[in-house]
Write a protein that binds this DNA or RNA. Structure first.
Lengths: 329, 329
DNA sequence: CTGTTAGCGCCTTCAG
DNA sequence: CTGAAGGCGCTAACAG
């Protein structure tokens, strides 16, 4: 491993000059810059990021904080999309990324969490799947000691940006399409967990549609659980014309229940996960591009780290019809 | 952020003494150790891993190299299990982990890959999903410049350990159970990609069973593709009594084809993924505990980093019957 | 058992 | 535009 010193000697310049040349400082003549670059090539030199971080006090490390659903791995594909989107983008931006699972810090208080991140030289955190009940995370955001990007949570401050699709509009769109395609005046809406931010937004979208289209709306809490959606469907499906679910998983549960009841009701979901196809069902759903959302989140993190202020970002969504053919390979 | 210097002053000892006390060196009196610990508490001190890494030249960083299946996200749960198993274990062992996707380094040559890892101060690599065709990875292993743990690839040298379940035996077990439960003398075996290591092992297990039980065996290449398994089933299912697939995904494809053909043949899979349940099928499969495999891989990495020699590790497996009830939440 | 002294590889003023 | 010098926070011999 050659060091910057070797490069300096090889190029016949001082160490500091090499540093400047490599880091694109303006005050280096084109000639020396070239000489340095040559030396770098010849020695196959790669700068040591550890030394660089220590010296400049900028590690450029960001943590991806992910909440794994322990109940079902069916939605792992969402997290995997999040991970790959963020990581690939981070490589391009030369940021260092570490992945942290929620379960690890679940029982820590805000101070412990902060210490841990500090001890890991982490400057930024991208948070996926945060709920209203995650008090310590709220605290972390409020304290503004880290640059934070929250996905699907509408909180913004000087050091915090938020990114998400418009859940209200998306829920409105997918439900509207489903109702228009199939007809029907009464709807069973199976919502998510009440402490989730997106739950409220999606619910609002559904309510707006009901208001505008003068539909009767029966709202039940499904907690994003396939099982609950299944039970709710058994109980209420006969009384309504259409079933709108706040997640694909619940939509699958509802659909299965309908099959067992041997009655038909149009169902729509939310997320656009592959599983949908495997479950052998066809239905409308909202396709969120998790990979892209996460890429953008990392871009935004780059901005924050460079001193930008927090802001709100809303990405677009699509309404699609998912089926088996789409997922088979 | 207080530094070791502050702690030293506060405790009234030298910097190096603090370092020794904190890193559990033996030659520090109980008394000073206590004083140091107190000072640490009072100052809320957390050691700076960057400085430590630079000084000791041990970053303790390991990379998780993961091959994402771009065709179907249905198996993301496997990778997610791998990731969480390794990461959680790494935290306990105070190792730094970064995740790297195969796609990123796909077109690099061995030297570029090595430079990249070096530049990232990575000392160890855990490789998931490596195939025989991945020449650069083989080169990386042979060059022995990194500590490597390969999952599901039986290669071992001084700096490389391998870890996996006994695929030969597992395939034998699951196929045997399925044949015994259902009867039948002729088998269609839908194998994986021929350039995969596990493919060969599983095939060998199937062949051993056929030999021992005097079964007739029709072997077809399914490439781990659900679609291919589906096509092969349409074509050959009528001629056999049982269908054994080298992966759950292919088993699902086979099962669906059978449903469309409206004939029954027992099918068994391999992996034990949740999707199996969602597909609404019941069948025998091999349950691999990916989380545990990955934890063990990280343990083994710890051993290698401390100077241990590479070795082969084989974990146990289970034969289970997976069904919808098992996966619903 | 404790303190002193060099660095680790790089960045960053500050003179020249 | 270039070079010298002083750290960043910590570890690791080596003296004492």
């Amino acid at each position: 491993m050659s060091s910057i010193k070797d490069v300096a000697r090889r190029a016949g310049v001082a160490i500091s000059t090499v540093s400047k040349a490599l880091n694109g400082y303006p005050n280096v003549s084109e000639e020396t810059r070239e000489r340095v670059n040559e030396a770098v090539k010849e020695l196959n030199f790669t700068p040591n990021p550890i030394a660089s971080a220590l010296s400049s006090k900028k590690a450029g490390r960001v943590a991806l904080l992910i909440k794994l659903n322990t109940k079902t791995q069916a939605v792992d594909e969402i997290n995997m999309q999040y991970l790959s989107g963020a990581i690939n983008r981070a490589v391009e931006k030369k940021l260092d990324v570490i992945t942290i699972f929620f379960s690890m810090i679940r029982d820590w208080n805000a101070e412990e969490i902060e210490d841990y991140f500090r001890s890991q030289s982490i400057e930024g955190i991208i948070i996926y799947g945060m709920g209203m009940e995650d008090m310590v995370l709220h605290q972390l955001i409020e304290e503004k000691r880290f640059k934070i990007v929250v996905v699907d949570v509408p909180i913004v401050n000087e050091t915090t940006s938020s990114i998400q699709v418009d859940h209200e509009q998306a829920q409105y769109d997918v439900a509207r399409k489903t109702v228009l395609e199939n007809g029907g005046r009464s709807i069973l809406y199976i919502s998510g967990k009440l402490d989730g931010y997106v739950t409220q937004e999606r619910l609002a979208g559904m309510q707006r549609l009901a208001r505008e289209e003068k539909l009767s709306l029966l709202i039940k809490k499904g907690d994003f659980s396939e099982k609950k959606a299944r039970e709710l469907t058994f109980r209420y499906a006969r009384d309504v014309d259409v079933i709108v679910c706040a997640s694909d998983l619940m939509a699958i549960g509802a659909m299965r229940a309908l099959q067992e009841m041997d009655i038909f009701r149009p169902v729509c979901g939310f997320d656009g996960i592959t599983l949908m196809g495997y479950a052998g069902m066809q239905m409308n759903t909202v396709k969120q591009d998790f990979y892209r959302i996460s890429s953008k989140a990392m871009d935004e993190m780059g901005r924050l780290l460079e001193g930008g202020a927090g802001r709100r970002m809303v990405l677009d969504h699509q309404i699609i019809r998912m089926q088996y053919q789409d997922v088979i390979s």
